[in-house]
Design a protein around this nucleic acid. Structure first.
Lengths: 339, 339
DNA sequence: ATTGGCACTCACGATCAGCGAGTGCTACCC
DNA sequence: GGGTAGCACTCGCTGATCGTGAGTGCCAAT
């Protein structure tokens, strides 16, 4: 009973099951794959794989289905990423290049990925903290209201209005704007807290409340939970494919609407920021997502990513294809942002 | 056979069906509602209502179910809006007041509405064209790149980058910014095309290409289809409620993901901008939405709305409650935007 | 270690009868 | 003429029964 063949059997089971969506039996297996042995032999291998927890049978007298552990092994050791076709690549690039806006880029990315994988796609907006300041604008709107606009090099624009106790002079606002920009432009926003610490001291006492108020709201913005924005697309794909996922669709949708859940997952997976990371079924640690897998990778920035993009589908998905699509879209997305 | 009682029967059927989700028969009807007549009489009325196309029976020997036409009559003439409870109102207000941002306001509105109605909620971002210019900022980023940022009084921020043929001087950019703001601030963006028409002439010939480029990109931004942004929440609610909607969920989700479809509907319904509008089942004119109803109303601005908010659910939804929720959230949303 | 054979299990689909909610119709009453 | 009571009829739903076949596990043979 060779170890190699057992793995080969597991791979065959995964591939067949992904394709047919039905438990795969020993007979079908030898027919569809040139394994060179009889069904009975396969049955022994299957028994061993089941013993090891890599496959399971839904009911007695049914074929085998891969377990989460089985998929894990498949992803880690048995699969090879299948690259996208040339036309596909070009289509992605062309589509993303038309974007006019960060919102538009993100939107197009998530759509194209959903389209490619025929699953749910998710994109995190570039993290404010990890982006660099491109420009900070102060706009006086009304007597004692100030609009603070932060623009990052990733194209993100964040804005807050500020109610002031006293109306500042045009001149002070101008000076503050100039100094803030001189100080901050080009730096990561995360560094800002340190950079801004001593800023008030550079101003006359009368102006300090204003300066403090502005720096505070900037810091607040960075601390905000809403700092992290997430966009989904392709939820309709969950329902597609007939009798596939259909019954337990509710919990999945609920989980996907909980931004907190998605954020946690994406953050956890971010440890491995550069390559494609996979979370399978129970590994998501979320009740509604036990039949769901995440395939994500970082994008933007070289070395450490500025945010993540990924695809969400049933555990029984085509991992090699999904991984390829995610990686491809992430690359083009990075390129567009950098360009 | 009094006309009045027939309508009363229709109302009873709608109310019971909405509540029980099962075809309602003559016996149940007289038991649950004090109609003061016997089932046989009701049957006659039912026959008449069926004749008129207001109700139908799924199969022979089953109870009756309201048709789209029946719901329409119910909504138009038989229902009275049930107001929200005090705590509910306060909760909405409190939740929306915490918003820090336009994105945040929109996000919170759509969530709270989804929560209230237990259906899908949809919010259109304030239309750029109908908003007034609060500020227009030009930021020079890099040698020959200019960032054009438009900020509206509804809090919307739109941004575009502009590649220039030649590097403009700081001074020209400053002058352009000042003039643009002087010209445009306070006006509806829709009027901008006219306002900006003669702007280039006010500049020296060398500066004109820049001016033209900027005005052009502003106009382009307004023409953009992406000018209209839409946000959904509560799609998970479609799946909730057991065996209710479950089978034909796919098409609905697909339709909801097609922003174009939603936009068309919202726009069509906008004719009646101030009150609550309802589209029932086939009235949506969309294949995937034949079992779906839209309840929407305008928000922001008094007189003519700046955009729409609404709730989407099964045709067999609680119209009075939904209409009340939609109207309430729209009001608070308007208030927050104005404040 | 592999294979052929064989008994066993069990989900699935088809068939069928009984039940009951609901209807339409007709004859009757006020 | 509108309302009511009674009655025969329809038909979807439920549950039981049963055959079928894919698939398994085990064992003896190679």
């Amino acid at each position: 009973m060779s170890e190699d063949r057992r793995l080969e059997v597991l791979r065959a089971i995964v591939e067949d099951y992904v394709q047919t969506r039905e438990p795969v039996g020993s007979r079908m297996l030898v027919e569809r794959h040139a394994l060179g042995v009889s069904p009975a032999t396969i049955r022994n291998d299957m028994a061993a794989l089941e013993e090891g927890g890599y496959i399971a049978q839904p009911h007695t007298s049914a074929g085998r289905v891969p377990t989460d552990k089985g998929y894990r092994l498949f992803v880690d050791r048995l699969s090879t990423v299948k690259p996208l076709s040339g036309p596909e690549k070009r289509a992605i690039q062309a589509f993303l290049d038309e974007a006019v806006d960060l919102d538009d880029v993100v939107d197009r990315s998530v759509r194209v990925l959903a389209q490619l994988t025929q699953q749910v796609a998710v994109v995190q907006y570039p993290s404010l903290r990890r982006s660099a300041m491109r420009h900070l604008e102060l706009v006086q709107v009304g007597e004692r209201r100030l609009l603070v606009v932060i623009i990052t090099d990733t194209g993100r624009v964040e804005q807050r209005t500020l109610e002031l106790a006293t109306a500042p002079t045009e001149q002070v606002v101008g000076e503050l704007r100039a100094r803030l920009n001189a100080l901050a432009v080009g730096h990561r926003l995360a560094e800002l807290i340190v950079l801004l610490a001593h800023l008030p001291e550079a101003f006359e006492p009368e102006a300090r409340p204003l300066v403090v108020a502005v720096t505070e709201i900037v810091e607040e913005t960075l601390a905000q939970e809403s700092e992290e924005r997430i966009v989904l697309a392709g939820t309709a794909n969950l329902a597609r494919g007939g009798s596939d996922f259909t019954r337990s669709l509710g919990p999945v949708l609920e989980a996907l609407e909980e931004q907190v859940v998605l954020l946690r997952l994406l953050t956890e997976m971010a440890e491995d920021s550069t390559s494609v990371a996979v979370r399978i079924g129970h590994e998501t640690q979320h009740e509604g997502l036990t039949e769901t897998s995440f395939v994500t990778t970082g994008y933007g920035g070289d070395g450490d990513a500025v945010a993540r993009i990924g695809s969400i589908g049933p555990t029984r998905m085509d991992y090699p294809a999904t991984m390829a699509s995610v990686r491809a879209v992430a690359r083009y997305l990075s390129r567009v942002l950098a360009g």
